[in-house]
């Protein structure tokens, strides 16, 4: 087991290294740099910025250095002192700008995952056990619908109906009175009151997928001989279902946990933008649009890190659940 974890850890570290390169390439892609878009923004407002001033600014931010030099400088800063560079737009260190947002994204992702599995696992088991009943049909259709509605649209619809019928908006993360308050139990409760909407919106597609997978594998497992054998020995009712086919059907669920998380993180910026949740999403969008490269890059790295850690955990979980994988036996 220790060997297995070490091996996984090593490959995870290599992945993180490659991710950092890709991220840097992407933030280098747009022609021009922050100073250009800064100058363009200023001249839009009628201010004249001279070429020399721009060159000066470029040198100040180190944007005149060659690409590889900037990459290694950036990485070295991260590795040696946890310095992710500065955000040009906010004129302060990237980590300071991101601040609490990273924890909001984490809460949102965790809560979404929690919702997904809390809802999907019981429904999946129910659907498989009561195949072709009204309930099964209902959940199958709801699943189709859940996969077809773009998450931002669901968020928009929730915004619309909540504003129309309850006259409160579901957007944001805190009520006004808690916005600048120190963390307290009341503030946590207030956050949960707001964040659940985004979590539900994000969880819908994932839930539909998990229900589908679980239902399909359970139907497969249910008719296998080991279940018949268990039945023949007198195991019956819930114990029969929960102990045998459900246990086997958990493996594909555990192995896709990492992807599920990646999916949630991937979809969260759009939902966060619509529901104006001050997490990493909206910041990422504005950073991209204003070519605030270190900020955008750092956010992308953080989002990738979350999915990589999620995949790592799901690998470990799968190894615990299934000894065949732990011992490297080919199935």
């Amino acid at each position: 087991m220790v060997n297995f974890i070490l091996k996984k850890l090593l490959s995870t570290l290599i992945t993180i290294f490659f991710v950092s390169i890709v991220v840097f390439i992407i933030i280098e892609l747009p022609p021009g740099d922050f100073t250009d878009s800064f100058a363009a923004g200023r001249s839009d407002q009628g201010e004249v910025v001279s070429k020399a001033e721009i060159e000066n600014m470029r040198a100040l931010y180190g944007l005149d250095r060659p690409v590889h030099e900037r990459y290694f400088k950036w990485i070295w800063g991260i590795v040696s002192r946890g310095d992710f560079g500065i955000s040009f737009r906010y004129k302060s260190p990237v980590l300071f700008v991101i601040g609490e947002r990273i924890s909001f994204t984490t809460y949102l992702a965790l809560l979404t995952m929690l919702f997904t599995y809390l809802i999907a696992i019981p429904i999946g088991i129910y659907s498989a056990m009561r195949q072709y009943t009204l309930g099964d049909y209902f959940f199958t259709f709801a699943g189709y619908l859940g996969l077809s509605i773009p998450s931002f649209l669901l968020a928009l619809l929730l915004l619309y109906f909540s504003t129309k019928y309850t006259h409160t908006t579901v957007g944001g993360l805190f009520s006004p009175e808690f916005k600048n308050a120190a963390w307290s139990m009341a503030k946590v409760v207030d956050m949960l009151k707001h964040i659940w909407v985004a979590a539900v919106v994000l969880a819908v597609a994932g839930t539909a997928k998990v229900i589908r997978t679980l239902r399909a594998t359970l139907l497969d497992e249910k008719s296998k001989l080991y279940v018949t054998a268990a039945k023949a020995r007198g195991v019956s009712g819930n114990a029969l279902i929960m102990k045998y086919p459900v246990r086997a059907a958990m493996n594909p669920i555990a192995s896709t946990l990492g992807w599920e998380l990646s999916y949630v993180i991937s979809g969260s910026p759009i939902v966060a933008v619509v529901l104006s949740i001050p997490d990493m999403g909206p910041l990422y969008l504005t950073a991209l649009l204003s070519q605030d490269m270190y900020l955008a890059g750092t956010l992308l790295i953080f989002m990738s890190l979350m999915t990589i850690i999620g995949t790592f955990i799901s690998d470990i979980l799968l190894a615990i659940l299934d000894p065949r994988i732990r011992l490297g036996i080919k199935i």
Binding site: T15, V19, V22, V23, I26, I27, L29, P30, W259, S262, Y263, I265, S266, G267, P269, I270, Y284, L285, L288, L289, A296, L299, L300, M303, S304, T307, I308, T311
Partner: peptide, 16 residues
């Protein structure tokens, strides 16, 4: 696959 899809391609699309 380990890089979240939408953020990754948002980055590329923003580069246009």
């Amino acid at each position: 696959r380990s890089i979240p899809t939408y953020p990754l391609w948002m980055g590329v699309a923003a580069a246009m």
